[in-house]
Design a protein around this nucleic acid. Structure first.
Lengths: 220, 220
DNA sequence: GTCTATATGATGATAGAC
DNA sequence: GTCTATCATCATATAGAC
């Protein structure tokens, strides 16, 4: 059990003498457990076991379960900023043509973020918890709309960013993005879960492109 | 508490004398509770209270919790058959142009099915349970792929229906369908949850159309 | 920082009276 | 068919020793 704790210990530069790395081990284990089982399914005991520590320590460091969840879902890197950086790079690469390929860039950026274990666990933890907890649902709502509205800013003027149409477009994009994550990582739907990033970029990118910039019918 | 049981009693024709509506009341309550809270979140006690009966009766009629869940998710009407009927009607209405509007027909049919409480509760129960239970995930996989592959049959020859490309197309459709249900009913994402059926048909239909019949990139 | 021991409560399931 | 009573299990959370 103690091996897991040692394994996640990193040679930190500024860490004070006497600290053991237990805090980080618990947080990593919590992210994995919440990601795999959701808020209700994950237990303090299970998280403690995965981190190789005593259950009482979890409470000692992070207090109640809900606070631990909030801490575990709060990543050291902010996905929306990572995505913005990816978008900026794509804009550089494509030039004026960027506006017609922003949907593909979005899929590529999201799949790239989800390749790393920590952001993926956090995203799955939010999805798995949102279905039974209104608090988690609110967190997931903020996360996806925030991330996607940031993407919309890349194509629309900031002044238009919070009007009704923009929110409608963003929520449509959100349906496809959440459904992609759900089907690929939670449901593990067969031909989709094993498809390559570029296949999915080519397949789903244009759909997002249409939601972002296309004609959506008579009402809009 | 007993009012709920009386309220759901229907004047059935072939019911034997002496039977109360308790069986059906329990099943209805179970569907509502599983739909609202998922398998783990729903409790036998809560279901019994919603049905206005004693918790022991639930076990008496349906045995273990898992059997009750299976019974509650099994609807009297089969959604894929309802959807096939809707599709046939649309094909009648549109004639040769039907093949270009099958995506819109699919969205219209699904939203129509989800308007009724029982199928919607069953769908939400599967989604809410699939995130923590592998058994429920398998049920949801079967449900969506079965429903969507049935739709694909409307546009492709049965001989092509189970090859790799068809499954790939079906899984892409599944991402958008699941994401739509999740965002609209679970997350209740604002501009989307209140949008009209026809708005969503116009917005999402073409995306599904492309997944079903369009060009999906170099690999396919 | 780390642990043992425990308070407190909810759950699924069963046995058996009426 | 319907109910009361109860068991065994597992959860979060806390108090306090070392």
């Amino acid at each position: 059990m103690t091996e897991a704790r040692k394994a996640s210990r990193r040679p930190g530069a500024g860490r004070r003498a006497g600290e053991s790395g237990t805090r980080e081990a618990i947080l990593d284990a919590a992210r994995r457990e919440f990601g795999a089982r959701g808020y209700d399914g994950a237990t303090i005991r299970g998280i403690a076991a995965a981190a190789g520590v005593n259950p009482a320590l979890v409470h000692h460091f992070y207090g109640a379960k809900e606070q631990l969840f909030a801490a575990a879902m709060r990543l050291p890197v902010v996905p929306s900023q990572v995505l913005s950086a990816v978008m900026a790079a794509e804009r550089e690469r494509l030039g004026d043509d960027f506006v017609n390929h922003i949907g593909e860039a979005l899929v590529r950026g999201l799949l790239g973020i989800w390749e790393a274990p920590e952001p993926r666990s956090a995203f799955l933890g939010l999805i798995r918890s949102a279905v039974t907890s209104e608090r988690s649902a609110a967190m997931l709502r903020e996360f996806v709309t925030g991330t996607i509205l940031a993407t919309l800013m890349q194509v629309a003027r900031p002044a238009d960013a919070d009007d009704r149409t923009s929110r409608y477009r963003a929520s449509l994009v959100a349906t496809q993005v959440i459904g992609l994550g759900f089907a690929r990582y939670v449901l593990q739907l067969k031909p989709l879960a094993t498809a390559s990033t570029e296949d999915l970029v080519a397949a789903i990118g244009p759909a997002l492109q249409r939601y972002l910039t296309g004609d959506l019918g008579p009402t809009t």
